[in-house]
Nucleic acid binder design. Structure first.
Lengths: 286, 286
DNA sequence: GCGGTTTGGTTCAAAAATGAAATTAAAAAT
DNA sequence: ATTTTTAATTTCATTTTTGAACCAAACCGC
């Protein structure tokens, strides 16, 4: 989710200074904006593992009169069309975003992403990628570049990596080849489309395992994904930042390569040879 | 940089539970592993903006007898590396690359990339993107995901963004439409292919302006590119890291959006509307 | 070795954070 | 309209965190 408005901005501004309990709340809200919209303060507090008192104080600290005030603002925002939100975002009119603000934010994205990663989930993701007969890398819209990233790396260390959607081919026809021995890596950072949900469901129905890469995991996701990898994608200006997602994918693929071992090295060597045969590569500099 | 030793792991394990001041220390150390090796406890505390007492307690909490003990461990790790680390580095056999090593490296990539960026070059890159009649986003092989990525963002704020190569179409035929009023964003991180060199030359010959995104700019590049954006792409394991490149592109596009201003907002609103018309988007969470 | 200096570590009182319980506000049910 | 129920907020006592001041030990130059 992009900087979703005043609330998100306030949280990020204060993030460094938040005490432990309040930061737990902040994380929860940043992770899934819907929480604040839908849940009651009591539940929010319970989910974050803090007392109701802490929750109340948290919103006070953010500058709201109360929890309710904050919730109302978020709800109002969700109702307004997205483009209007954009104009309220920083970096406009004022004539630009500072690069150091960008850097700070990106580093935070990376650190928080790694930090909240449960190592057993990463391990089982790697294991799935290792054992899947075919791998399906899936993502729509803004996630499609991520799909390309993932495939570019995966194809270096193992065969049978398929992309969905494929350059305008009809998805169902392509996806029909999925089997229960396959594994799907689903990139769903930021907004998810109907197509994304459909394909995830289809994969589950076919008995395939699903690894979901996302920023805000909703309760429903847990049911449809075998492994969930969360990454923080907060952007300092108008776009979400895919930086942490890319980084996580890179790490995932490197781990997979390590697990595969010699066969991966052999494969890469083969690839190099083919490159050489084609005379593709420029040896020195331009 | 520093290999993610026990210390990094301990920090990540406890991170969620650290109080505010100690977390500041944790962030500092995670951001740059070298700090702990080189600085004195007093300086470390000062840098983090906490008292010495807090620093001392922090290392106690991590399970070390004292600050010194932790520092010694880190130093021992850094000293041992050449042989031991090398064998473990690609992560083969030994069973993987440590994620904290990865994190450390990625953060360094980001920081270095931003640091070495000359702001006037960024500014002129934005200006070119702003004024180009058509934009051509170009890149081959491992760079193709970057191309996707750049286009996905650029197309949100202005029209006429073309990709080369395009899903198997012949490059020359496509590229023939380039004019001297156009601008080419050339992604050439890591290995460059012959095709890449050719297309850059063609662009220059056609009189178009060229922005080159690369990791290691060679002397020859200066002649063929109007603006060169350098990024660090060192990977901790077997793959180069495109993380910094992605981040830089994101910043570039955000700056462009800011420069375009209202027209960009208007365009995004239009895009949102079309999305809405299509019933594409899932509103709440899954 | 010996004053002086620097740096790591400890104590203790003040400040901040926190949760349980009390209080108030608001919504539902009657 | 009044009671009942539920949820948000405030109070307050307890716990945790924190830094200033204080000690100890290593490190100098002599």
């Amino acid at each position: 989710m992009a900087v979703g408005g005043p609330l998100h901005k306030r949280i990020l501004d204060l993030y460094e200074d938040l005490p432990r309990g309040e930061r737990r709340l902040a994380d929860l809200i940043l992770k899934n904006g819907a929480t604040l919209r839908n849940e009651a303060a009591t539940d929010l507090a319970r989910d974050a593992g803090v007392s109701k008192a802490t929750a109340a104080r948290f919103f006070k600290r953010l500058g709201y009169a109360s929890f309710k005030a904050a919730q109302q603002e978020v709800r109002a925002q969700a109702a307004a069309p997205a483009a209007e939100r954009a104009s309220a975002l920083p970096g406009f009119g004022s004539g630009g975003v500072s690069i150091s603000a960008h850097l700070d934010n990106e580093v935070q994205n990376l650190i928080r992403t790694v930090e909240q990663q449960r190592s057993d989930e990463l391990a089982s993701a790697v294991k799935l990628l290792l054992n899947g007969e075919k791998l399906w890398v899936v993502g729509f819209g803004d996630n499609y570049p991520l799909v390309h990233f993932a495939r570019a790396q995966l194809i270096k260390v193992r065969p049978d990596i398929r992309i969905i959607p494929l350059s305008g081919f009809s998805v169902p026809e392509e996806f029909a080849s999925i089997s229960s021995a396959d594994v799907m890596l689903a990139c769903g950072v930021g907004r998810r489309t109907r197509a994304f949900r459909n394909i995830t469901l289809s994969a589950k129905r076919a008995g395939a395992r699903v690894i979901l890469l996302t920023d805000t995991a909703s309760p429903g996701d847990a049911a449809n994904a075998d492994v969930i990898l969360r990454c923080r994608s907060i952007g300092v200006a108008m776009f979400d930042s895919m930086t942490a997602a890319v980084s996580l994918l890179t790490y995932l693929c490197a781990s997979l390569a390590a697990r595969i071992g010699d066969a991966a090295i052999e494969r890469m060597r083969l690839i190099e040879n083919i490159h050489a045969d084609w005379g593709d590569v420029i040896a020195g500099d331009l």
